[in-house]
Design a protein around this nucleic acid. Structure first.
Length: 575
RNA sequence: CGGCGUAUAGCGCAGCCUGGUAGCGCGCCAGCUUUGGGAGCUGGAUGUCGUGGGUUCAAAUCCCCCUACGCCGACCA
């Protein structure tokens, strides 16, 4: 590609509303332009990257035996009503009405459509297993789109759905997809980790998320250095091996006039925060006011709490509800002297504590030396309801946990029979009986990967693309070509030669100043660059510098293409 | 959805408090000079100051409504 025929429109400043680095850089380089909240045009530069990601995903899905299809983006209400999701999906579902008054939605995911397709196409167990996938724009009316393409409302997704006669078949394909995803993210050149994930409302027996590791990631991942254990913090079990010791202190009331947090109370008393207990007031749907106890340095895990009996739709109690039930302002509440009708859920760790510190249920006071059984009732329910923290024991007992941050770019899911049963998707088995199919679904956020790759690979000068998804492999930069026929001719020749050798080449033929060309090449993150100047050419050399290199090096002009090919040949990502 | 904030040229911003001819930087266009790290000079184009209403002789500026956009949002009791 010649720059003069391309469209590159870089900015020196990034738009003020951009928050994360990938969003800033994508907007500065003009990879994307915003049309509306969470909705972007992919400009030529950005689309090159998006298509390369898409290509790798497609190749590996095909290699794994999946079959590409393309479903409609728009689906009728009736189909979504079959699974009940027309109403359940909520405001994220973008609904619309046609001229006849029929209602449709813009697909946020395609279980209904693909299951409808499958129940018509698949009649016999002999046709199974099948895995259908598509790469298509989805729309989810996010509450708060942000971070550019990382959480857009419209986004490109690869979604695959597999169909099986039985669970064993599903498990085989699930493993196949798990392995395929690992290959895809390896080829993309990204540092990633697969973790156990919450199965959420969809149910099913298994689910893994694939995360690109980046400090800006929205998800916290817990993993063990000494074993394979890795899980989203949402569902990583927090185990507690401590046994409660006997009480050694007398309960005492201490003045904590301004200390409403465990940190502040621990500071004031000069004790370890691990000896404090905090109480979080929540209100389940049955309006049974509930106190949840976790250790001062721990935090409540919403998902774990929501899975307890009766807690499915809990919310935080309001300040008024706290005043009414506890007779005390927030900041000083605790389990001691709580009314009998208040339910107390204790985290496992708290249940093993003795002589602890907690709120006194009296403004400006806390209690020390508190013990269950003696000073307050034993909790009504003891369960793991906290988030794991770094240093916790690994659930497999093989070491301690570390925490990393990640961006979710893939999710594999065993759906089981949920959708097939709701939509009566059956095949005849070898007993000539109608058998509800088992399904798996497997998603990859293609456009999110572009943002995630930047989050993981950038420096002060701009983006640094992994070789496999760079918009161009190499930039050819002629110095003062306007004044030198030799430079112009050599650059053109090298451009032709590199292109013929299979490289994606960008020839900067703008007659721009050197600084402009360098700045753009570095901002755009083209992995390799070769600079041609009159002096070097006279000596038969060109100047090469990799995007991550600190310094340039001279390479013999006539040998450059072979030299470059050798340099990149060990890269797994070039195929 | 709740809280807060913002809206002035393609982008980044000032002006608003204290009402009186709409500005700066970058970018864009033309010319000349320049050409190994985002050039210099000269000249130029581009704004219904987000929408609607109100106050006023006069509104970017003060007041009200709306819209869009952004940030934060269980909690750390």
């Amino acid at each position: 590609m010649r720059m003069s025929q391309f469209h590159l429109n870089t900015y020196k400043e990034s738009p003020s509303d951009a928050e994360v680095m990938s969003q800033k850089l994508m907007l500065r380089t003009g990879m994307i332009r915003k049309l509306s909240g969470g909705i972007y045009t992919w400009a030529p530069l950005g689309l090159r990257v998006l298509r390369k990601v898409e290509g790798i995903v497609r190749e590996e899905m095909n290699r794994a035996g999946a079959l590409e299809i393309l479903m409609p983006a728009i689906a009728p209400k009736e189909l979504w009503q079959e699974t009940g999701r027309w109403d359940q999906f909520g405001a994220q579902l973008l609904k619309m009405t046609d001229r006849a008054g029929r209602e449709f939605c813009f697909g946020p995911t395609h279980e209904e459509v693909v299951t409808d397709f499958a129940r018509q196409e698949l009649k016999s167990y002999k046709q199974l297993p099948k895995n259908f996938y598509q790469i298509q724009m989805k729309f989810r009316d996010e509450i708060r789109p942000r971070f550019g393409v990382m959480r857009g409302r419209e986004f490109l997704m690869k979604d695959a759905y597999s169909f099986h006669l039985d669970e064993a078949g599903l498990l085989r394909e699930y493993q196949n997809m798990f392995d395929t995803y690992s290959r895809i993210f390896t080829r993309l050149g990204l540092k990633f980790r697969a973790v156990q994930a919450d199965t959420g409302a969809i149910g099913g027996s298994g689910s893994h998320e694939f995360h690109v590791l980046a400090s800006s990631g929205e998800d916290a991942l817990a993993y063990c250095e000494n074993s394979d254990f890795a899980a989203n913090v949402e569902m990583a079990p927090a185990i507690c091996t401590d046994v409660r010791g006997a009480a050694t202190q007398v309960m005492e009331k201490v003045s904590t006039p301004k200390q409403t947090s465990c940190e502040a109370v621990a500071d004031l008393l000069g004790i370890d925060i691990k000896r404090t207990v905090k109480a979080i007031a929540v209100m389940p749907s049955n309006s049974q006011f509930t106190l949840v106890l976790v250790r001062g340095d721990h935090s409540v895990n919403e998902i774990k709490l929501g899975k307890l009996p009766g807690m499915a739709d809990y919310r935080l109690a309001t300040e008024a509800e706290i005043r009414e039930s506890m007779g005390c302002v927030p900041g000083f509440i605790g389990p001691v002297n709580a009314k009998l009708e208040i339910k107390i859920i204790s985290d496992l760790t708290v249940a093993s504590m003795h002589d602890f510190v907690c709120g006194a249920n009296e403004a400006k006071f806390h209690l020390t030396g508190v013990n269950f059984g003696r000073d307050c009732a034993e909790p009504d329910h003891i369960s793991d309801v906290r988030n794991v923290i770094a240093g916790d024991l690994s659930p497999d007992g093989k070491g301690t946990l570390s925490i990393a941050r990640g961006i979710e770019v893939g999710h594999v899911f065993q759906l089981g029979q949920k959708y097939a049963a709701a939509m009566n998707a059956t095949v005849l088995d070898d007993q000539q009986k109608a058998s509800v199919m088992f399904m798996g679904c497997y998603g990859i956020g293609v456009s999110r990967i572009v943002g995630a790759a930047i989050e993981q690979n950038f420096d002060a000068r701009g983006m640094i693309w992994p070789a496999a998804i760079a918009p161009f492999d190499i930039a050819v930069l002629p110095m003062n070509a306007h004044a030198s026929e030799a430079v112009k001719a050599a650059s053109e020749a090298l451009y032709q030669e590199l292109t013929a050798a299979g490289f994606d080449v960008l020839l900067d033929d703008r007659n721009a100043r050197a600084g402009v060309m360098f700045a753009d090449q570095e901002l755009v993150g083209i992995p390799h660059r070769v600079v041609l100047g009159e002096k070097g050419l006279a000596a038969g050399t060109v100047e090469y510098q990799g995007r991550r290199d600190a310094e340039s090096q001279q390479v013999v002009q006539a040998e450059f293409v072979g030299w470059l090919r050798a340099r990149v040949s060990d890269s797994v990502s070039r195929t």
